[in-house]
């Protein structure tokens, strides 16, 4: 079962007494083959879970670096089925869990049922949908659950305590804490301590749920989060892909190097 595989990944990391490292890159950036190589390189460099962006052009949550990646993938003709193929190919050789991060219109256009079916066949472990907030997402989340896919609810600094409790009550095993009010990839504008305070509140309400922390985390700050459950680095990796393309270097190698460095900083 895919969902239990995601839970097992978290448990393994916990046994190692460290936080899980999640990476975010846009699926299909800059093309199918390179994107698959990037995922392989990320997995080999020690990432615990891979977040694969199924980008949307008219998104309202992505910062510049991820927009560039999304634009490259979409203008290269990448379709939703291509993303599933990349994941399916990746999962043939790697155990690393893959979560899809996307926008609601991509799921609507594909068809909810078909999307879930395809997630199962390509071994996707979880789904994050940025613009499908609680409680509007509950029906879809239920369908995910029935198919052993973890639908990951989002929380943020201005989610008030009542709403937080309600969301956590409905949430599956994993939630995602947006560490600051911003789009992705902006400079961290709150202190790591403040983020951890909020993380601890979430854990106090729901000790059993794994909480991923994302937005604004880079090599400079990742070590601050080593005592949490998990954190995501995304924009820095997308920027590295852009740089590698511009300088005609191998994005898979460079992203892999960056992931190794992040892993080391998170574990030390």
């Amino acid at each position: 079962m895919t969902s239990s595989s995601l839970i097992k990944s978290f448990e393994r990391v916990k046994e190692d007494n460290r936080a899980a490292l999640l990476t975010y890159t846009v699926g299909g950036d800059p093309d199918k083959k390179t994107s698959l190589n990037i995922f392989k390189s990320i997995a080999e460099s020690g990432a615990d879970i891979i977040e694969c962006g199924l980008g949307h052009g008219a998104n309202i949550g992505d910062g510049g670096a991820i927009q560039d990646s999304t634009y490259r993938a979409l203008s290269g003709g990448i379709k939703t089925d291509d993303i599933f193929e990349i994941i399916e190919d990746f999962k043939k050789d790697y155990e690393t869990d893959v979560i899809i991060m996307t926008y609601q219109n991509k799921i609507m256009a594909y068809g909810e049922e078909d999307f879930i079916k395809k997630c199962i066949s390509s071994k996707v472990s979880g789904i994050i949908c940025v613009d499908w907030p609680w409680p509007l997402n509950l029906d879809f989340a239920k369908k995910c659950k029935e198919n052993s896919i973890v639908f990951i609810q989002l929380l943020c600094p201005t989610t008030n305590e009542d709403r937080l409790k309600n969301i956590l009550n409905d949430a599956h095993e994993v939630v995602y804490y947006i560490s600051m009010l911003s789009t992705t990839g902006q400079k961290l504008k709150v202190s790591s301590d403040e983020i951890k305070k909020r993380f601890n509140l979430i854990k106090k309400i729901s000790p059993d749920k794994k909480c991923i922390i994302g937005f604004g985390i880079t090599a400079d700050t990742i070590n601050d989060f080593k005592d949490t459950d998990a954190c995501v680095v995304g924009s820095a990796l997308c920027r590295e892909i852009t740089r590698s393309i511009n300088e005609e270097l191998n994005p898979a190698t460079n992203v892999g190097n960056m992931v190794s460095d992040l892993k080391q900083k998170l574990s030390s």
């Binding site: 613009d131 943020c156 947006i178 009010l181």
Partner: peptide, 21 residues
């Protein structure tokens, strides 16, 4: 109650960060 006209048009399909404002 969810902001949909005719049960399906409109709504607040937004990131959690925009829920409070």
């Amino acid at each position: 109650e969810n902001g949909y006209w005719g049960g399906k048009f409109g709504g607040n399909q937004i990131a959690e960060s925009l829920n409070y404002p």
